[in-house]
């Protein structure tokens, strides 16, 4: 049935159909089958087969926090893990929407759209190579999925995971139990090395040479990672955040100016990102 239809379309149309139509799904009633909480942090696992099948690390979903009209908009949350027909998200209760999400229980349902955006670039050339994953606070969320994909690809991921206190690095055991190489930091020294995750990265790069860095976390952290990566000449990718209206390119709400942008056009984080290579990003201090 599809072939005659596709023949009617010109090449550019096929591209659009492929890019948009085949990529995202709405799951109005994804059944929650798993919940874990650690203080402010929460992990929910739910059934969403089509999203699970297609998701790539670094992609996200747009989720409604409830049925009511306040809060109104969906919230963007990264895909944390995928197993068979199940998708997991890991989030910090940062405000009204994520707090309501944190009140969801097993057997409740979630209204989600996904998978959205463009994720991290994974190439076969990463095989048997060391790569560094740097996650700050809730920014660890997409890196778990990424770590698994990298391992399956035959790459050697090392995870740097930092938080303000011991309470902000709840996923450490999960990584350790699965035998990932993981280095931990807390700002107050309550667990792991004292200081910021970027300090540890900086020091450890003296005798560790990853060929790629993947980072997600607070903007200031990613900016430091970017500087370190540039100094060491390591290609790096970053997952950026933005306030989003729709999550799929329809509202122009999530834009940010990137290095190759023209005067006329800024980039939509939801569509062209949220993951971008370091060369494209204009960090705050560089902004004029």
């Amino acid at each position: 049935m599809l072939t005659p239809l596709l023949k009617l379309l010109r090449y550019s149309d096929i591209f659009v159909v492929a890019k948009i139509a085949i990529r995202m799904h709405k799951e109005p009633k994804a059944l929650i089958i798993l919940k874990r909480t650690w203080g402010d942090y929460c992990l929910l696992g739910f059934r969403a087969e089509r999203i699970a099948t297609e998701a790539q690390p670094g992609q996200f979903i747009m989720v409604r926090s409830g049925d009511n009209l306040h809060p109104l908009l969906r919230r963007p949350i990264s895909i944390h893990s995928v197993q068979d027909d199940t998708v997991e998200i890991f989030f910090q209760q940062a405000g009204i929407g994520t707090r309501l999400l944190g009140q969801k229980e097993k057997d409740d349902t979630l209204d989600i759209i996904g998978p959205l955006g463009k994720g991290f670039h994974l190439e076969n050339s990463l095989q048997e190579k060391s790569v560094a994953l740097i996650g700050g606070g809730r920014g660890i969320a997409p890196l778990y999925f990424l770590a698994h994909k990298l391992r399956n690809l035959g790459a050697l991921p090392r995870i740097y995971y930092g938080g303000r206190t011991i309470n902000d690095i709840p996923l450490r055991k999960k990584f350790e139990e699965e035998d990932f190489e993981i280095l931990l930091t807390t700002d107050d020294g309550s667990f792991g090395s004292k200081g910021q995750v970027t300090d540890l990265l900086h020091v450890s790069l003296q005798d560790f040479s990853p060929i790629r860095i993947f980072a997600c976390g607070p903007e200031a952290m990613m900016q430091k990672v970017s500087r370190i990566a540039r100094e060491k000449n390591i290609a790096a990718e970053f997952s950026l955040e933005a306030i989003m209206g729709c999550g799929f390119g329809a509202c122009w709400g999530c834009v940010r100016k990137l290095k190759n942008d023209t005067q006329e056009e800024w980039s939509k984080i939801c569509e062209e990102g949220p993951v971008f290579p370091g060369e494209k990003i204009i960090w705050q201090e560089e902004e004029q």
């Binding site: 933005a242 306030i243 989003m244 209206g245 509202c251 122009w252 709400g253 999530c254 834009v255 940010r256 100016k257 005067q263 006329e264 056009e265 800024w266």
Partner: peptide, 9 residues
């Protein structure tokens, strides 16, 4: 048109 700088929403 470039539109306004973020945050826009």
């Amino acid at each position: 048109r470039p539109g306004n700088p973020p945050p826009r929403l």
